[in-house]
């Protein structure tokens, strides 16, 4: 992992985000931290509601208006703290240095604007190209994301394209400003399996050809194993385990990661029951005082309830947040 040794492109420390709901203030992300090197492909894994998406959106200042709030932490990107930036500064980072790809390409594309216009709009904003040059560039970008027949598709509207082509169009939009980091929030969840593989292949190629760093939010550990250099596993708003994807998934050390891997169906299902993790994840308003996973953990001890364990280095670039690591 040569990429992991160079200076980080993005360094997140102690990120905390809370939501103001009618039922009170809820801590959605608590003390999240990780490094991302240029050209690194990191998987951010966890169940629904574990704070993956909130983490990504908080970095770009795209939390829901008036409800989500960053309570603390830093997110140094190319030497500047994104969390302390004003709107004007964030607008210069968004699209230009950090691109974002969303889960559902159908609803994230403007229905009344052709994809060429939408891509051209980004190119014109960030690179000041004239309309004609922007159109040429849009065709290039569509070809770069392997859109079939880009010269014709450029004039299509979102509803005229297949799901895979829509996602390619959205990736082209996210890349139009020439970013160094691409945040992909479950980019393949809404697609069928064959298209999923093509889109992941495309992301890998973009990483290799352009040195793009990618944060891939997903709940699919298989995808992480196939594509990511590193992985961070989130549970109830915290990162519980982090490290090189291959070693973390081959030999997980946090009980939650172990449970998550055990509950995955294999490619050729045997006649045995999937090992589900017992219980439910805690609601964000009802976090236990100690380790959030302790109520569901087979190894829970008395000290688990005392205080939430922090991430500790356990060697080989791996970090685990569990009392059984580092103390014993």
């Amino acid at each position: 992992m040569s990429a992991a040794t160079s200076a980080p492109l993005l360094a997140v420390r102690d990120l905390a985000v809370s939501f103001h709901t009618p039922y009170g203030v809820v801590r959605a992300v608590d003390g999240v931290g990780f490094d991302l090197a240029p050209g690194e492909f990191m998987g951010l894994v966890g169940e629904s509601g574990s704070g993956k998406t909130v983490t990504c959106r908080a970095m770009l200042g795209l939390l829901p208006n008036g409800r989500g709030r960053v309570d603390g932490g830093t997110a140094l990107f190319e030497g500047v703290d994104l969390l302390r930036m004003d709107d004007e500064g964030l607008r210069r980072v968004r699209g230009r240095r950090i691109g974002m790809v969303f889960q559902n390409p159908t609803s994230h594309l403007d229905p009344v604007m052709s994809i060429g216009e939408q891509i051209g709009e980004v190119v014109r904003l960030h690179h000041g190209l004239a309309a004609g040059a922007a159109r040429v560039r849009a065709v290039e970008l569509l070809r770069g994301v392997r859109m079939p027949d880009p010269e014709t598709r450029i004039d299509s509207y979102a509803h005229q394209l297949s799901g895979g082509m829509r996602q390619r169009a959205m990736i082209a939009m996210a890349l139009a400003g020439g970013p160094a980091l691409l945040v992909a929030d479950e980019p393949t969840t809404a697609l069928d399996v064959t298209v999923q593989a093509q889109i992941l292949r495309l992301l890998l190629d973009l990483r290799d050809s352009q040195g793009l760093a990618i944060v891939l939010v997903t709940h699919d550990l298989g995808i992480v194993l196939e594509t990511c250099n590193t992985v961070a596993v989130m549970y109830a708003g915290r990162i519980v385990e982090r490290g090189p994807a291959a070693t973390v998934l081959a030999a997980p050390r946090h009980p939650y990661t172990i449970g998550l891997l055990g509950s995955r169906p294999g490619a050729f299902p045997r006649r045995e029951r999937l090992a589900a993790i017992p219980g439910q994840p805690p609601g964000p308003g009802a976090l236990p005082t100690g380790c959030a996973f302790a109520p569901r953990c087979g190894h829970a001890e008395a000290r688990c309830a005392a205080a939430a364990p922090t991430l500790r280095a356990v060697g080989d670039g791996r970090w685990v947040a569990c009392v059984r690591e580092g103390w014993s």
């Binding site: 770009l60 607008r91 980072v93 968004r94 974002m100 559902n104 994230h108 403007d110 709009e121």
Partner: peptide
């Protein structure tokens, strides 16, 4: 809506998002 969020993620100003999207 989602496409307005996407437009914000691309760095567009509020006035442009309102008028064009």
């Amino acid at each position: 809506s989602d496409f307005v969020l996407a437009a914000r993620s691309l760095g567009f100003r509020p006035a442009r998002i309102l008028l064009r999207h």
